[in-house]
Amino acid sequence: MGFLLRIVFATALVSLAPAVAQAKNAVASPALQKEFDGFIEKFRAALRANDPAAVAAMTRLPFMNDNGIRDAAQFGAKTYRTSFTPKNRACIQRGKAVYDRDGYKNESYFVFCGDLIFVFTKTPAGFLFTDISVND
């Protein structure tokens, strides 16, 4: 009887696995998706124009809490020039943004470009570009 009970338990776990995995994949509400779509359209337009000041205006400053990148001029010189290469700008133009909500209920979208992840987070002021992370 112990063997049969283990088989029933294992079968139950296997059947629950897809539901548990699916619960971990956050889905943006239609209103949030619409808000992000409007933001990313403007962000991509600024990238097409290669306009670091316009990108900085859509960025949370100081960028990544670095006081050395606290205004548009510093952002342009220290971040835009090195991180928004033609290759990365093209990637953000065509890349699919992936939504996620963390344990603190922060809502973000991520665009993966090679070794980098560009992060856009919902803030009280709306969506802002908030981080560049390493894609490991």
Rank of each mutant, 00 (worst) to 15 (best):
D136M: 09
N50V: 14
G95T: 01
K105M: 12
R48M: 13
K87P: 02
A72K: 03
P18E: 00
K24V: 06
A23D: 06
K87G: 11
F3R: 12
S83P: 03
L13Y: 01
M1F: 15
A73Q: 15
N65C: 07
T82H: 14
K24N: 12
I40K: 01
R101G: 04
A49D: 06
A26Y: 03
F118W: 00
K24L: 11
A10L: 15
V134R: 12
C91R: 00
L4R: 14
Y99I: 09
P30M: 10
S83E: 14
L116V: 06
T121E: 05
R94I: 12
E35L: 11
L116C: 04
Q33G: 05
K87C: 10
V111K: 01
D131L: 08
T85Q: 04
R60M: 12
Q33V: 00
S133I: 09
A26Q: 06
L128S: 00
I132V: 13
T82Y: 15
A31R: 00
P52M: 09
G2C: 04
S83V: 06
A97H: 04
Q22L: 08
A10Q: 05
P124S: 09
G38Y: 02
F9Y: 02
A45Y: 07
F127N: 00
T123G: 02
V8S: 09
A90D: 10
V55E: 03
T121L: 05
R81Q: 15
K96C: 09
D131I: 02
R60A: 14
R44T: 04
A46M: 02
D136T: 11
L47E: 06
R70Y: 05
A26F: 04
A97R: 01
A31I: 04
G126L: 11
L5Q: 12
L116T: 06
I92G: 04
G114M: 02
T85C: 11
E35T: 12
R44S: 08
N135Q: 13
Q93F: 06
R89E: 03
I69Y: 01
P30Q: 08
F112Y: 14
V14N: 02
A28K: 00
N135E: 02
D71A: 14
P30R: 06
C113P: 00
A45C: 10
I69V: 13
D37E: 15
N106W: 07
G114D: 03
A19G: 10
A17F: 13
G38L: 03
R81H: 12
N88T: 14
Y99N: 07
P30C: 07
V8W: 01
A49T: 07
A56L: 10
S29V: 05
S108H: 05
S108I: 09
Q74C: 03
N88R: 06
A49C: 05
A21C: 09
D51P: 01
S108T: 13
A57D: 09
A54C: 05
A77I: 03
A54D: 07
F84A: 07
S108Q: 11
V8M: 09
D100E: 12
P86E: 11
Y109P: 01
F112H: 10
K42L: 13
G38C: 00
